[in-house]
């Protein structure tokens, strides 16, 4: 097995993705969990970029780290009375055995499938060149219908979210 730069980078990023993922499960303080998640998501984004999916990697950073993670932190801050105090993630003690067995089983089955299937036959298109242009082209040709439909979806979900969050005068009276 020849060890080149790509392999070293892969394992480095894999460690960045996997070790914090374990910490997400094990950590007791929910704020710490959020920050471990940050590291894990960064690792995954790095893996995407390493595999040549630069656009996907940057989207991962923008959406998951810039959007969802910040949302989680805001959620913790807004909903707790004392945001600086340690927040326990779970109430009461549970046996970890069930979770471990289930997790191991699911992992084993999925790993067997992923290793068994010849994914390499269906390798992606990118040979190191940037994917953004190609993705843009495909989104407005082959996938124009889903692309436009997603915009309708986002429109009404946005309105629905605003409806849910807003306080109506008639609600206040009731």
């Amino acid at each position: 097995m020849d060890i080149d730069f790509g392999t070293i980078m892969f394992f480095a990023l894999a460690i960045v993705a996997v070790v914090p993922a374990f910490m997400v499960v094990l950590a007791r303080d929910i704020v710490r969990v959020a920050f471990w998640l940050l590291a894990s998501l960064c690792g995954v984004a790095g893996l995407y970029i390493l595999l040549g999916a630069d656009f996907l990697g940057l989207t991962q950073v923008l959406v998951y780290i810039g959007g969802i993670l910040v949302l989680i932190l805001f959620g913790i801050m807004m909903t707790s009375k004392d945001p600086l105090h340690e927040k326990a993630t779970a109430s009461g003690k549970r046996s970890p055995v069930t979770g471990l067995v289930t997790g191991a089983l699911v992992f084993a089955v999925l790993a067997a499938v992923i290793v068994g299937v010849g994914f390499e036959e269906n390798k992606g298109v990118s040979g190191g060149e940037p994917t953004t242009t190609k993705l843009g082209e495909v989104l407005l040709t082959d996938y124009v219908l889903p692309f436009e439909l997603v915009s309708v979806l986002l429109l009404f979900v946005l309105c629905g979210a605003a409806y849910m969050a807003r306080r109506r005068r008639e609600d206040a009276h009731a």
Partner: peptide
Amino acid sequence: SLLYGMTG
């Protein structure tokens, strides 16, 4: 995603 990986 699994099925996509298998069949392309």
